[in-house]
Design a protein around this nucleic acid. Structure first.
Lengths: 218, 218
DNA sequence: CTTGCAATGTAATCGGCATTACACCAAAAT
DNA sequence: ATTTTGGTGTAATGCCGATTACATTGCAAG
C-alpha cells in the first residue's frame, strides 16, 4: 500500500463537488482542528496532512503557505458567523425584538469554543501578523457593525428610537455590551462555557439597558 | 576585546545589589521588552542576551529555561499593571459624576500600551498557561468589578438608582461598556492608540446610555 | 598574590519544522 | 486509448532556535 485511496477525514459536505473541492474542504477542516488545538506556531503542516489525508505537496499547491491556510480557515469561520446575521437584518422588525434576535444570533456564535479559541489565536498573533488581524476585523467586527448600524438607522427612520449622528458607534456599543460579558471571562478561563440560558439572559438585560438605561423600562 | 566588562543595558535600579542581582535585573528588563514586543513563541533567547549583555549560559543558570524567564517576567509585570489599576472608590458621589470618574480612571489605565500588550500576551497564552490567566483575572478585572458593585449598591441605598439583586453583574456590564469600545480595536491593531479625548468621550457616552438608555437623558 | 567560583563569549548539539523536489499514479477530457 | 492535469507518497533541503559544553577570564576573599 504505497498510495492512499481518496478517503481522508470528514469529506461529506454538500455532495456534488469536484475532486479538488473535496480535498480543499478536508484540508480546511483538519487545519482548523490543528490550529485551534495547538496554536499557530506549534501547529505543524504535516499533522494537518496526516489528519486530512492527501499530501503536503497538494496542501501547498492549494494554499501557498502556512499563513495562507490559516487565513483560509479564518475566512471560512467568519463567513459562518456572519451569514446568519445577514438574514436577520433584512427584516423590519421592531427594535426590542430585533435587537434581541440579532444579539442572540451573534452571541450564540461567539461563545462557541471554536470562536473563542480563534479569537484568542488572533489576538496573540496580532503583532506578528498585522494583516491577519486586519482581515479578521474586516470580515468580522466591521461587517457586523455596519449591518447593525443600518438596522438602527432603519428603526430611527421608523420613529422607534431617536435619531443620532453616529449609529456606527451606537451599534458598536450594543455589540460590545452583548459580547463582553459573555466573552471576557471565557477568554481567560477555558473552563467557563456560557450556556444557552446565559446567552439569553445576557441579551435580555443588554437590550433593556441599551434602550432604557438603568432606570428601567420606558 | 573578547569579553564585555560589566556594562549591559539598564543596570541602575536600587544601587546596593550583588553582582548576580544586577545581572538578573538586566535580564528581566530585556526579557520583558522582547516578550512584549514579539510574543512568547517568536521571542528568542539570544535576542534577550544581546540586549541585556551577559551570556546565554548565565541566563539559563538563573531562570532554567524559556518558560521560566517568561513566567518571571509576567508575574512582575502583572503586579505593576494591576496595582496601578486601583480605582479610588467614589463613595457618596452622585452617580453620574461617580461613574464618570471611575470610568475614566479605569479606561485611562487600560488603554496604555503597557496594559494592552500585557493583555494581548495573556489572552493569547491563556490556553498554555491557565494559572497565569487566572491570577490576572483575580488581580485585575475581579477587583475592579467588586469595587464598582459596592459603589452601585451605595447609590441604590441612597435612592439614586433602582435596587437590583445583582449589582456585580451590572457593574461588570458598565465596565465592559467602558472598556470594549476602546480596547477591542487597539488589541488587534497596534497603530490604534485611543487619545485622552477618546477616553473621555467614550466614558461620557457610556454613562449616559448606562443610566438612561438610547432614549436619552431622564 | 593566588585560588576558587561565578560569569563570559563562542561555538557546538540537536531537533523540529516549513518548504521544495521528484518520480509515480488516477481520473477526466479528448 | 491516450493525453492532460492534478494528486500522491517519500524524502530531501535548509533554516532557525533552544539548550548545552567548554575553555577563558574577572572578582573577591584569604
Amino acid at each position: 500500500m504505497k498510495q492512499n485511496g481518496p478517503e481522508g477525514a470528514a469529506i461529506k459536505g454538500t455532495d456534488s463537488a469536484s475532486r479538488a473541492e473535496l480535498r480543499r474542504r478536508a484540508f480546511l477542516d483538519a487545519a482548523r482542528e490543528v490550529f485551534l488545538e495547538q496554536g499557530y506556531e506549534a501547529a505543524n503542516m504535516s499533522e494537518i496532512v496526516r489528519r486530512a489525508g492527501g499530501s503536503l505537496a497538494t496542501l501547498y499547491a492549494q494554499f501557498g503557505d502556512k499563513e495562507g491556510i490559516f487565513l483560509a480557515v479564518l475566512e471560512a469561520r467568519m463567513k459562518d458567523v456572519t451569514n446568519a446575521l445577514e438574514v436577520e437584518l433584512q427584516t423590519h422588525t421592531p427594535v426590542e425584538e430585533g435587537l434581541r434576535r440579532i444579539g442572540e444570533q451573534f452571541a450564540g456564535k461567539l461563545v462557541q469554543p471554536q470562536s473563542l479559541e480563534l479569537y484568542r489565536l488572533i489576538v496573540g498573533l496580532a503583532k506578528k501578523f498585522p494583516d491577519l488581524a486586519q482581515t479578521f476585523m474586516q470580515l468580522g467586527p466591521n461587517k457586523v457593525r455596519a449591518a447593525i448600524a443600518a438596522y438602527l438607522q432603519d428603526r430611527a427612520d421608523a420613529g422607534e428610537i431617536p435619531q443620532s449622528d453616529d449609529f456606527e458607534q451606537l451599534g458598536s456599543l450594543f455589540l460590545d455590551m452583548v459580547r463582553s460579558p459573555l466573552q471576557s471571562r471565557a477568554l481567560l478561563d477555558q473552563t467557563v462555557r456560557p450556556s444557552e440560558e446565559d446567552v439569553r439572559a445576557n441579551v435580555e438585560r443588554t437590550v433593556s439597558v441599551f434602550l432604557y438605561g438603568l432606570s428601567g423600562k420606558r
